[in-house]
Structures are given as C-alpha cells and as structure tokens.
Amino acid sequence: MKFALFTGCVARGATRELMLSTKAAAEGLGIDFVEMKSAACCGAGVMPEKSPLLTDTLNARTFALAEEQNLDLITICSTCQGNLKKSEYNINSDIEYKDKVNHVLKGGGHQYQGGKIKIKHFSDILATPEGLQMLKEKIKRPLTGLKTAAFYGCYVLRPSELSEYEDPDNPTALEEIFEALGATPVYYESRIKCCGFPIIMMNKDASQAMAGNALIDAIQSGANCVVTGCPLCHLSLDSYQPDIESLREKGYSIPILHLPQLVALALGYSPKDIGMDSHIVATAGLDSILAAHA
C-alpha cells in the first residue's frame, strides 16, 4: 500500500510525536507513505475566513501534487481531512470555479483534474475489513485491558455529506480499530463533540469548559485514555489539560493519545519511540494497565 501523506502543519510543529508515531505505525504495517513536502497548509478552516478562493486554490495544488504521483492522499489530522474535503467539494461542484482555480495553478505547472485520487484520513484506511484484518495480523502486543475512548474531531464528522462515515452521528471507525488492536472501546456521548480548540484564544473559558465536559464524560464512562485522530484536539485535551478548571475541581486527569500512537503501541513500539514521553499528561499509567493484562 502506497499513499501520499499530507502531514499537516501541527504534526511538523507542536505535536511532532504524531509524525513520529505515524512513521512507526506505517513501518510496522508495511504502508509506504510518501510525504508531500511541497504541499501547503489546508487552511484549517481559518484561511477561508480571509479568502475561500485562495484556500481552494492552494488545496487544489495539493490535490494536483497527489494526482501527479497517482497516489491517494492520506491525512493524519481531522481538521486537514475536513478542510481538504471541503475544497474538493467546492471545486468539483462548479466547473467555472474549477477553471478559475486551474487557471491560477497553471503558472506553477500544475493542473487539478478531479475524481482521480481519494482523500482519506489514516483511520479510514484502517477501519475497512481489509485494514482491520491487517491490524489483527500485524499486532505484536494486543492492548488487552486498555479502555480507550475515541475523540473523533468535528471535521471528519461534519458536514455529514463530506464525511467518510455512513452515520456521522454514530461513527464506529475508531472503536473498530481499537477492538482490532485488542483494546476495549468506551462509548460515550462526547466522542463526537468539539474539543474547543478553535476558540482557545478567542474565548478560553468556553473552550476549556468544552474540553472539560468531554474529558469528564470519558473518565466517568470508565476510559483509561482518550484517543484522537486530530492533533488540534490533542493540543486542547492534552497540552491545555492542566488548565481545565472543571477537571481540576474533580481531581481528574486522563492521558490523550494520537491514533497512530495507539496503533504503533500494539505493533510493539515502545512509548518512548513514539513520543509518548513528550505529552503533557503522563501516559505511564497505561503501561501498568497493559503490563497487568500481559
């Protein structure tokens, strides 16, 4: 399996452990990820506030780069996934708009054809019957006893017409992956909610109340850890976790993992190899749970 990997900005910056663990998971699964080093940022839902045309043109350039390699594009960030899908939809639903975008791309020697490559989140290729079978065959250290709570990230769910999930109000992709890795999925209401990250600078109290509500829900549902496919959710739920008042009041704390970290863990990589020691909330407790069930 060979794919073009759209890393997104945060995996190369504040959550470098996501990149580290994605490479480890790919190596362990025998997936060949070709990093798209000249792709620009997806716009993260922020650049369209300035200019939707600019955002769509930059993303069309990214799609053209994947088309030129004849490779499907894989994201490791829910926000990148949602924003690339949005641009793909905008461009392909209006032929005149597509011509306008391609006219701009021409100057750089690129052309976006459309319909030639698929845009998928890493979890989408794992949560297929073939992907789940591959996980089951390749795991070396089943995550028995680990109660994992999925946190999807808004952009892979909404708008539902651009989501890869059949029922974005009741997604099961991450939970199916957890089960294939030997972990026990924890279903809780907040798994499809917002982490609050987009407004962390505009309204910190509201942002952290959102993150706190979700984490309290996960903890009270019995989770040992929360696993997300979005590095922005990771920042909100991990890096900011010690600031969340509602959690502090209850004396709660919970480790947050990136999805590729969970996969790599089951493939036998050590927590240090996949950057779990760089998290703000310590993940050591997870080792004891796994050791107790080994």
Binding site: G45, C154, Y155, L157, R158, P159, K193, C194, G196, P198, I199, M202, N203, A206, S207, M210
Partner: peptide, 8 residues
C-alpha cells in the same frame, strides 16, 4: 468570532 467551528 466566538463560533467554535463544530458544524453542528
């Protein structure tokens, strides 16, 4: 600017 982009 306080909208959290959740799309709900």
């Amino acid at each position: 600017w306080d909208c959290t982009h959740c799309g709900e």
